[in-house]
Computed example of a mutant assay.
Amino acid sequence: MLLLPLALTVTLVAVAFSLQAARDHGAGMRPVRPGRDRAPAGLLSAEGLAWRLQRGSVLGWAIGLTIFALAMGSLSGSFRTMLDDLPQFEIVLRRLGRGAEDLVDTSSWRCWASWRS
Rank of each mutant, 00 (worst) to 15 (best):
A50P: 00
G56D: 04
P34S: 05
T9C: 12
P5N: 02
L19C: 07
A16H: 11
G42I: 03
S45C: 06
L44A: 10
V32Q: 12
I67E: 00
S18H: 02
G48T: 10
A46D: 04
W115E: 10
I91K: 14
D85V: 05
I67N: 01
D85M: 08
L75S: 07
S114Y: 06
G64C: 10
T81I: 14
T66L: 12
G77V: 11
I63L: 13
I67Y: 02
L53C: 03
T81W: 09
A46P: 00
D105E: 15
T66C: 08
R80A: 15
L70I: 08
I67M: 12
L4K: 06
Q88E: 15
S107Y: 11
A100C: 13
L8S: 04
T66K: 00
W51F: 02
S108N: 15
R80H: 06
T11N: 09
A46M: 04
R116S: 13
G99K: 11
L2A: 14
I67Q: 01
S18T: 08
S18R: 10
P31S: 07
L4A: 10
L65V: 07
L86Q: 15
E101T: 03
L44T: 11
F17W: 14
L86R: 14
R116K: 10
D84H: 12
L86D: 15
S74P: 00
E47P: 01
L93Q: 08
L19I: 07
L65M: 07
T11I: 14
G28M: 02
F79L: 13
Q20S: 14
T66M: 03
D102Q: 04
S57G: 12
A100G: 13
I63Y: 02
F89S: 06
M29D: 08
W112F: 04
S76C: 09
V13M: 08
L75V: 02
W112V: 04
T66I: 05
L2K: 06
L3M: 05
A39K: 06
A62M: 08
L3D: 08
S117V: 15
